[in-house]
Design a protein around this nucleic acid. Structure first.
Lengths: 222, 222, 222, 222
DNA sequence: GATGAATGAGTATTCATTCAT
DNA sequence: CATGAATGAATACTCATTCAT
């Protein structure tokens, strides 16, 4: 989707086949990179999985390094889009603390899901793995991905603070703490995404995170 | 000591004796793995950096895979030791909330340092990068490393709760949240360890984390 | 033919086209295997002798083991063809014992030559050397090579027996004995193919073998 | 045995352990060489199988090449001894053709056994395999082994010819033909020693060989 | 534009041999 | 004398990349 759109804006009048191939290559690249890591992923394997010949990858994407960058940016954009979509209807002017908690309990699983889907683990792991070799990747992925979401979330929290529902000094930092409270157990529980987490376990983690957050940021009686 | 001296007298004439080649190899392995990642790290490079011949690596450690495992477990053990050392004198029976905050402000930088030193970044990144290829690594490293520290920290928090200084339902989870609040900004601020973080910035992060933690877990007035 | 010409025109400019690289590799493989044995033969040496790059060998033949198998089967097929060709015009209905002897003296050197040419020694020695490592090789080479020839020869001897020129109970066994009588001295005389055998010596061996065979299998007077 | 004797003549007054080790190494060498071939046989494996440290092999036998030569010569000598022992009581002045045939039928299996025991196959295969690398090996093994036996057998046949039991022009050649008739099917039947041959099959081969030999070399009626 | 074929560079691993003890 | 430890050299194989079609 997102990668398709991006390509479309660049080459709108191209025959359909070209775009399909580019997208097929990027999809295959993601799968193979996620499965094998950057170094172990062979261009041969990606070409086979994409159903194209090897030189086609070089024609379309210029080589392994650039393909990797494109794949990572695609992942970041997709993750950001999903994160923003999850935030879309949050918050909707809660009447009091109980309703705020309800709204947090409703939105949090969708946010957590952004960190727990396979693409997120792949992005995270490849980012950790290859930041040394691709020093520009981390900032770029942050800018195209999680970074934006964090700021939008900060805005929503600020809105709640302005309405008197929360007491927040630094909304961006609070947003980060909120996400940290929601997600900090995920790596351990899922073994970096290699095992599913039981729904009840996940719900418990989320509820505990929200409660800690609310205890910390609810307005204090004077 | 004596072994070191003996080796030294031997080294003067011919650098072939056995010495602590094993340790030299593991040190070099850590450096090269951290710098290049597992796949890109060549046994040649490790041998060169350790100052030994390549077969010596195979004699002592059996091959690249096992060397990697040993390096990672070594990192985990060292990190655990450092973490436990940081916790040693915490808490020391605070008289009230202000002193508790002081003690937290004192211990937190030492804990955060465990997550921000180069070895920790290397361990983290290699773990993320290679958990697919070494599925047993993540649990093993957790067991030998951070996992223990977390439980010990939980015990300390439980002690504070028993003394009435904190209100904690699930100490292990609270310990995780505490560490998450302290460390969640580190990856972004340091670009996964590739840039130093200013002391003041770090202090701000730590203080914010502690304050959020205290607001969330301080006993409420009845 | 035409392919050869085309390739030639290409070769003039750049030796990279595909041509009969496969055949060149197999020829070089035979030479190097024969010279060095399977283990000592290095793929590097074969590639150099074939005038191709090493990976080309892997592209065309999949690896050292398979190349060896192909070389051996090629040798077996070629030897079989030569053996059958030698037998083609034997026997041609001899009028009596003297003419039968003439015909045997005529065909025998061509048969013996099948056992004394360099390719035969190479095949034999590699087969003996590597039958442990390639247990399926001996039966395969036998089936594609000498085995067939033996049966055809047996048929020709049976024809002579039917015509009353020989007295043969078991033609296949008699064929084997015939070949054994012709060839049993070859390994010793030629030091397993490493030295030429004088023509007169060879002729003596052949004549002695034929005479023994004829004395054993000529019809007895009632 | 034989190898032990030889060593004894060289180092009669050495302590027993030294000879034992040398013999253990040679035994292990034979096993490993036979199993793996010369190139694939590692000195490590031989040392392990002999229960000694690697340098001990170099002390006692000077290296892999020389060990191989010694092993091969030992095999040849042992084979020769066995062959001569088999011939010891042959022939014992037969009264007529029938008794001659009996005596041949009695001695032939013992001779054939010399070609069909595992050590013989090992010797044969290693000789074929490594004659290129050890050009002096084939003549040396022949001289120490089969060559002698052939000449002795020739003498026995000559004795029979002198007594009028056989008609032999060239005894050495006849001896070779005799052995060839007895053994030519062994490689095919046993797949170069990798499969056992049924007793009945072997008896049939032997009988057929003897009968052909006798038909060829029995005195003709004038 | 897509491809089959080819390649130069680089990988982990093993081996025969030799010191120093 | 026997050994544990070390090494230089060599091996099979793989990969990202690029021609020529």
């Amino acid at each position: 989707m997102s990668a398709g759109d991006i390509a479309a804006t660049r080459e709108e009048r191209r025959p359909r086949g070209r775009l399909d191939k580019r997208q097929a290559i990027m999809d295959a690249g993601l799968r193979v990179f996620a499965r094998e890591g950057y170094e172990r992923a062979s261009v041969d394997a990606i070409a086979a999985e994409a159903g194209v010949a090897k030189p086609t990858i070089y024609n379309h994407l210029g080589g392994k390094e650039n393909l990797f960058r494109e794949v990572m940016l695609g992942l970041a954009r997709a993750a950001n889009a999903k994160f923003l979509a999850a935030l879309e209807s949050f918050p909707s002017d809660p009447s009091g603390p109980a309703e705020l908690r309800e709204q947090l309990l409703a939105v949090a699983p969708r946010l957590v899901d952004c960190y727990h889907e396979p693409e997120s683990w792949a992005r995270q792991r490849l980012l950790y793995a290859e930041s040394g070799r691709f020093p520009d990747l981390f900032p770029a992925v942050l800018a195209a991905g999680t970074g934006q979401g964090l700021e939008v979330l900060a805005g929503r929290l600020a809105r709640l603070a302005n309405a008197g529902h929360l007491e927040i000094a630094d909304p961006v930092r609070a947003a980060g703490q909120f996400l940290a409270l929601l997600t900090h157990e995920l790596p351990g529980l899922s073994q970096l995404g290699e095992r599913p987490i039981g729904d009840d376990v996940l719900a418990g983690v989320i509820e505990a995170g929200i409660d800690t957050f609310l205890r910390a940021f609810s307005p204090r009686p004077a």
